[in-house]
Design a protein around this nucleic acid. Sequence first.
DNA 1: GTCGAGACTTGCGGATTTCGTAGTCTTGGC
DNA 2: GCCAAGACTACGAAATCCGCAAGTCTCGAC
Lengths: 171, 171
Amino acid sequence: MHSEAVASRSAEHRDSRESRNGTPHLDSVSLAIIEQLQEDGRRPYAAIGKAVGLSEAAVRQRVQKLLDQGVMQIVAVTDPLTVGFRRQAMVGVNVEGDVENVADALTAMPEVEYVVMTAGSYDLLAEIVCEDDDHLLDVINKRIRALPGVRSTESFVYLKLKKQTYMWGTR
Amino acid sequence: MHSEAVASRSAEHRDSRESRNGTPHLDSVSLAIIEQLQEDGRRPYAAIGKAVGLSEAAVRQRVQKLLDQGVMQIVAVTDPLTVGFRRQAMVGVNVEGDVENVADALTAMPEVEYVVMTAGSYDLLAEIVCEDDDHLLDVINKRIRALPGVRSTESFVYLKLKKQTYMWGTR
DNA sequence: GTCGAGACTTGCGGATTTCGTAGTCTTGGC
DNA sequence: GCCAAGACTACGAAATCCGCAAGTCTCGAC
């Protein structure tokens, strides 16, 4: 009875192998589940099951696995400005030597929300969330610039956040 | 009986006014609720209530209001790479004329995840999520550069995402 | 001083959801 | 051909969600 929304499940039934980079492979059903939870992280398993063509228990197992594997997390997100963090900035970093080491050091800092290695005129981009100007200055000048291997940094202080979505796949 | 975890509630009891920029004011109890949901977006209301010193019903009301006001959203977040979006980039944009207009145009594009106005050598930063190189090229060269007011752009293609958290306040 | 609004608590019952477990089916390895 | 593992279904019990009502408390307006 519940067999729309997903073309052929048996065809991709056994499908939990890993792709070469170690990230787990996601079939279309898991994708559909993620889409449901991107719309509403608290949507009940039964409703999701109806939407993707699975039983409640199956959805529950899949979601649990996705969470355990770290593929997905269900969290509350806010605009930091409304939660009392008044200064944010993106910092471009140039590195000499091993970029990954610096990236790991940045990752370890609680004020750093986001770290990505890039191709272009910076080796790394890091987003920083702070309480005020002093805090921001401290993080950038004292802590980041002091890291071994950091050649130079350039900062972009946020003036206004215009968009922030989490809806990949829902388009 | 349930009066730990929050020092004095009566002191900040009536506290639903708005600050001058239109964003609702958040008291420490709502902050605590948000923290709980940042750890686990599906945590039951009763458990949250126990943690923040409120009844289940009160937590339910507060959460609903926070969602309605748009202060917070509860969603699943993923690493786009594992969900089939193979190319991401940050784009720095320089604008002549009204920056806000360009920001709005970027906001309207589905491939654009994140838009922020900044102080520094770019006027805007935009994060782009695409399926492949062709798609990315198309968005940057055909669509963004074609926007009226865009003077120049610089791109940073993502090589590896190192960190991505949503835990403001939980520190 | 009185009154009304807003936020919270307690209590409740019913609908819904979650959770564990047992059983079925399919697939790949041997 | 047989077996073990993985994914799914089915189902009952426990927990949660949800709406509602009544009563308390505080604050600000009048």
